[in-house]
């Protein structure tokens, strides 16, 4: 497997307070979609959730599963803005699961589990999964040619936990061109090994191959510049709190996250990386 529990906790358990300083108020830790030049990060995050919920054909009476739910921004959006009666989230991180359940959102339940091993008899009508797939395959596994099999197992599991007629709003980071500049390679290597250990982003063609024979791709939207803008905004906000971060969490936390976010901005600009959103329809037997 890609990132295990310890590795995921390296990425998300620095401290909820730390992330609260620079993410939007609902703590979406993924790409937002900006509708205009002046839109705020908060509004752009809601816009992203609305796009993915539309891809998943969410309505109030459908049960929705959010795979890799983070701090629950999407679950909260589903319960409040879309009046969804039952929304379940799965996350590998215990601090995220505690945080979501503490909020006691109506109809919302958060499970701490590895989705790939999660045992449930419940079937959902709609799926959302925002940048969780990026954790599934490690660089070593990709080198051994296992990426497609790993992603396909994920899409199979998604098929198993859904009812016929289900739709899926999926978002993933993508890797594209390998940098030809040593410093850029070192920075990306640092992000993959220090900030997000265990995971390697998929290539678009990996996803296209792996969805078969479980899901049909209806729409793909590339959002590379939206992620460039999102990470630039995170970096700007984080730098406003430099003194406090250095004092409370240490110089290495500030320096590592400064390097990580700066690398992201450059990687999306240079098309080393990209981001895609997919509208998927379940292939029913």
């Amino acid at each position: 497997m890609g990132s295990n529990k310890q590795e995921v906790e390296v990425s998300y358990d620095v401290s909820n307070e730390f992330f609260r300083l620079w993410l939007d108020e609902r703590m979406n830790y993924t790409c937002a979609v900006f509708e205009s030049e002046h839109q705020s990060l908060e509004a752009a995050q809601l816009n992203k959730l609305s796009i993915l919920s539309d891809f998943a054909k969410v309505t109030a009476n459908k049960s929705v599963l959010d795979i890799g739910c983070g701090w629950g921004a999407c679950l909260e959006y589903l319960a409040t803005s879309r009046s969804v009666k039952r929304a379940v989230g799965v996350t590998l991180s215990s601090s995220q699961a505690e945080e979501v359940n503490r909020r006691k959102l109506p109809g919302v339940e958060c499970v701490e589990s590895d989705f790939m091993k999660w045992e449930t008899t419940e079937k959902f009508d709609a799926l959302v999964s925002i940048c969780m797939l990026d954790h599934l395959c490690s660089p070593e596994e990709a080198r051994k040619g296992k990426a497609i099999d790993i992603y396909r197992a994920y899409f199979k599991k998604c098929h198993e936990v859904t009812n016929p007629g289900a739709w899926f709003g999926l978002q993933t980071i993508l890797r594209n061109k390998i940098p030809r500049i040593k410093k850029d390679l070192e920075d990306i290597y640092f992000c993959t090994h220090v900030i997000f250990p265990g995971g390697l982003n998929p290539r678009l063609e990996d996803i296209v191959q792996a969805v078969n024979p479980y899901w049909e791709i209806i729409t793909v939207k590339q959002r590379r510049h939206d992620y460039e803008r999102t990470t630039a905004e995170w970096l700007r906000r984080m730098r406003l709190h430099e003194a406090r971060i250095r004092q409370e969490w240490g110089d290495h936390v500030f320096d590592d996250y400064d390097r990580y976010l700066s690398t992201c901005v450059r990687a999306f600009d240079q098309f080393y990386s990209s981001l895609a959103q997919y509208e998927l329809r379940r292939l029913d037997a």
Partner: peptide, 25 residues
Amino acid sequence: DSLSMMQIVGEMETELSIQIPDEDL
């Protein structure tokens, strides 16, 4: 190492004005 190799590839691409797809590498 692999980092230097990519840099060498990049400089050859620039000098020759060509682009080599990553899967060739």
